[in-house]
């Protein structure tokens, strides 16, 4: 598949090239395009985005409009309020949970990226004996889902005395992240010309110098994609955080929202939605900044 995989960097370039080509669209009339293209696309987009609109709207609706669907138009709000969000940020441990999530995500991602850069470089460029097998094993590791690991891992975490500490998550998340980012970086490293490395070897550089001074700077787009991907995965992780963390102050946002915000109060929806919104925003903002890298990484990794 190497021919097909060639180079994740080519992704955006190809994409752009295809975009400029007018193609065969002149064969279609405007009304026809309206029915076959814009209408279905519009419906799908509305369905995909409606839950977020509803989440955001509920978060800023005052309580009396929240449950009264008949006197007010439920699809809009006349008196938006920041009450729920303010309560969340100033009267609940939510900022602390956000901080926990951020900390775990950053540390686990950094550890994973370092390990993945080394591993990907070794598999692609050192080509030690058995490198192909190791590459295959890493791919298989990606296919092992957390839902079959959490029971034995909980006893491992307990044995090592990590239960209910952030370390339980920082050390277990890399098992999800390393296989994926190694795989992603292997694609980027393969695209870097061999000649650069040969020159450096002749000039007397060590492998370590080659990696830090040539390969890593050239693979920065790949590193950014891997970073965002890992960060998103950490933020999304639920079952390990649910199993390994028990005290309220150590929880991450997804677990805390599900366990701490759900009480009998019928007006809880406002604060629940505010919590979900505030938990999603950091990722959406990060994604908005690096969307090109993200899409390229996804396409590149799959083509591999």
């Amino acid at each position: 598949m190497t021919e097909l995989a060639a180079d994740p960097n080519l992704g955006p370039a190809k994409l752009a090239a295809a975009d400029h080509a007018e193609g065969m669209s002149y064969l279609q009339t405007v009304p026809r395009r309206l029915v076959t293209l814009y209408l279905p696309l519009g419906i799908i987009l509305v369905v995909l985005l409606f839950p977020f609109y509803w989440m955001a709207l509920t978060a800023i609706k005052p309580d009396e409009q929240l449950l009264d669907l008949d006197t007010y138009n439920p699809f809009w709000t006349t008196a938006p309020t920041l009450k729920h969000i303010a309560a969340l940020l100033f009267e609940s441990p939510y900022p602390h949970w956000l901080w926990n999530t951020m900390l775990v995500a950053v540390v686990a991602t950094t550890l994973s990226i370092i390990a993945s850069v080394l591993a990907a470089y070794a598999i692609v460029r050192l080509r030690f004996r058995g490198a192909t097998w190791v590459g295959g094993a890493i791919f298989l590791a990606y296919l092992v889902p957390p839902s079959i690991l959490f029971i034995p891992l909980s006893s491992v975490v307990f044995q090592y005395g990590l239960f209910d500490t952030p370390f339980a998550l920082v050390l277990t998340y890399p098992t999800i992240l390393i296989p994926f980012s190694t795989w992603l970086l292997m694609g980027y490293f393969k695209a870097i010309p061999f000649e650069l490395e040969e020159c450096a070897l002749i000039d007397g550089a060590s492998r370590w110098q080659i990696l830090t001074k040539i390969i890593v700077p050239l693979a920065v787009p790949g590193l950014i994609s891997a970073f965002i991907f890992c960060f998103t995965l950490c933020w999304n992780e639920f079952i390990y955080a649910l199993t390994f963390i028990s005290s309220t102050q150590n929880k991450t946002v997804p677990v805390a929202i599900v366990n701490e915000f759900v009480d009998g109060d019928i007006y809880r929806w406002g604060s629940l939605m505010a919590g979900a919104l505030c938990g999603s925003l950091p990722l959406v903002v990060l994604y908005a900044f690096f969307v090109e890298h993200y899409v390229a990484a996804m396409t590149g990794a799959v083509k591999e």
Partner: peptide, 9 residues
């Protein structure tokens, strides 16, 4: 967006 948060929506 994390699955849990959209699941809440």
């Amino acid at each position: 967006v994390p699955t849990v948060l959209s699941a809440i929506a």
